[in-house]
Amino acid sequence: MTGADSHLFDAPGPRAVRRTIIGSGVAAVFAVALIVYVLMELSAKGQLSAAKWSPFLKYDLIKFLLHGLAYTAGAAVVSLGLALVLGIALGVGRLTRTAIIRMPCVAIVELGRGLPVLLSMLFLFLAFPLAFHIDLPAFWTVVLALVLYNGAVIAEIVRAGVLTLPKGQREAAFAIGLTGTQTMRLVLLPQALRIMLPSLISQLVVLIKDSALGFIVGYQELTAQAQSAALLFNNPLQTYVVVGVVYILVNSVLSEASTYLGERQKRTLSQKVVTAGDAVTIESR
């Protein structure tokens, strides 16, 4: 991640190395000075006091926040599953030739992509009960809003995945007598889904982040729990910093996994191309 894109610049000469070291030293001094200033200001306002930070060592608060993390994970995972189903349906629907199926799919995708998740959530929270006289549980308010947006995004990923497959795949499937639906279900989709795996994991990061909006509609995920805790202990800054670190840890792991899978896939795919190329050369000899 921190490697250089070294073709962009020359290998540094002695003067450049010296300048880098001096410049970095000066910058480091400024950075340390800034950090010291911020810490002094915070300490003067009592923000570094034990009273503000010690609650995070208490079992009850840890349990309270872990409860939030579990709710966050629950909403994100369930949303991913449902969004995948919706996304595949919409993505495949957009690829059909029948306008009566395709047009509604296009409309739903544009709706999902154009609406802020917060607005969908508020809609389910405020308008849904009025229209249907049922109160939607907070969990489903969050999940359905997330599914609408992420389903639309996944639909576009599915569509792109299918469209990037070599044309020969579809033609070969037709040639052995598969119908259009069979071709999609047995040949195209499985390949597209495999290519999509890294994107799906990074979509999970998006879901975890967006589920933080749950605090607005009263779903007890991590951010909502943080808000309650911050009120109780009167330490909002500390709580949000701690919770932010938790989000960063979880999402970093997922992001790394997605990058790793993506790169491994790129390698195996290019290997396959090479092997296929070799086979052709061997035959033509």
């Binding site: 991640m1 921190t2 250089a4 894109d5 962009l8 610049f9 020359d10 540094p12 450049a16 880098t20 410049g23 970095s24 910058a27 480091a28 990061v205 975890i208 982040k209 967006d210 589920s211 933080a212 909006l213 605090f215 951010t223 943080a226 909002p236 800054l237 949000y240 910093v241 919770v243 932010g244 989000y247 960063i248 999402n251 970093s252 992001s255």
Partner: peptide, 30 residues
């Protein structure tokens, strides 16, 4: 991020990794 100066690359790398993985709501709160 693409400059010849390693500390500049590291600084941006940290900024991107931290903020990108934080919900916007938490960025607002902080």
């Amino acid at each position: 991020r693409v400059s010849p100066v390693p500390p500049l690359r590291w600084a941006v790398s940290v900024y991107v990794r931290f903020v990108r993985n934080t919900p916007l709501t938490i960025v607002f709160f902080i």
